[in-house]
Nucleic acid binder design. Structure first.
Lengths: 194, 194
DNA sequence: ATGACCTTACTGAACGTTTGTTAGGTATCT
DNA sequence: AGATACCTAACAAACGTTCAGTAAGGTCAT
């Protein structure tokens, strides 16, 4: 792995942990065992380093779900598998998830557009297509958003949810969350088509 | 309004915008038209100022939904009203919402516990109770989470969602979002009890 | 009523540290 | 010789924090 890549992947982790202004160039330099000036040899300034780190983190997240869409099973089964894969990815790659949360918080319009069109569009379209298949007379965009929203919320708010009454350890298990969301959605679709 | 309150309410807005390390004491002092030392007269240091600001922001959010729970209508209608109120509050008090997002990102266990038990527990319990009423054989905690998760996601991810294909301006209207979520959930409940 | 005294709310200036960034120099490899 | 990858050392600016001082307001004995 080249120094530049080492810097980028360390930056992803640290920016995700501490945020843009929370991470100093010296801390990053220390983490990759280089001098500060060495970082400035590879990147013109902190801001473009951050942008490149974000782009780097998002670069290989596109084709994770190919096995889901490729499999030839029922639409219901596809939804179930997508939800499960989505939760797994988000739980696995925690840094990616937190970096994304920070980007959403920042909500810079230009970067939002880049993120949407450059990274997630194809997945979102496939999900909308699946939604249309399952509930033809409903708004596909709203439905696709609901699917992702349900899954994302369970993961993002885990640290808070565990302090609410009625919480059980199983509420943090991917298969339990996935099963709950899937049945919730499929039940809803069943009612609308009936 | 006292100087202390003026500092706190300005801090809420600015911490929500820039994050903890993104806001300097000098910037805050400038915003409230006081000297930096004046702030230190009211608060021992930046960290406790932040904590007090968070507590201040969350302090009067408890009894917003009293009219929802107080009204004597069907459980379905109550769910519909709660979702609508929840979305309205989150859209209205944007600073509160962003500050909460930042707190979740930080995910400090002690503060999560404080937030959960001190601020949101009663609302969450009422929502769980409603969920049990609507779908007795399902996990109330998971259901309550789903309700909030659906609503929150639509608001948090608005800046991103608008760049996906199939987006329409109406997807940002509170009544449209609320209606979609409500029917989605009620349909699901209908299927499970049938 | 007045001067002494304490508290409260603030100010300007400074403390030492950390920040992003750069200049100049040194190896290593083509 | 020139490009590449790195270093140490320094820069000004901004950072959180503190200190000494001041002006205003209330309290209280005289």
């Amino acid at each position: 792995m080249s120094s530049k890549e080492k810097i980028l992947s360390a930056a992803i982790v640290l920016f995700a942990q501490k945020g843009y202004s929370g991470l100093s160039m010296r801390q990053l330099a220390l983490a990759v065992d280089l001098s500060v000036a060495a970082i400035y040899h590879h990147f013109p300034d902190k801001n473009t380093l951050y942008l490149e780190a974000v782009r780097f983190a998002f670069s290989d997240k596109e084709q994770v779900f190919d096995q889901v869409w490729g499999s030839d099973c029922s639409a219901e089964e596809k939804l179930s598998r997508f939800i499960r894969s989505f939760i797994d990815v988000m739980l696995e790659d925690h840094d990616f998830h937190r970096l994304m949360q920070r980007e959403i918080l920042e909500a810079d319009p230009e970067r939002m557009q880049l993120l949407a069109q450059g990274v997630f569009t194809s997945q979102f379209c496939l999900l909308m297509q699946l939604a249309t298949e399952l509930a033809p007379e409903q708004d596909a965009h709203l439905l696709a958003t609901s699917v992702i929203g349900l899954a994302k919320y369970y993961i993002e708010y885990q640290p808070l949810l565990k302090y609410f009454p009625g919480w059980k350890p199983e509420h943090e298990m991917p298969e339990v969350i996935a099963a709950h969301i899937t049945t919730l959605l499929l039940n809803s679709f069943k009612a609308t088509t009936a």
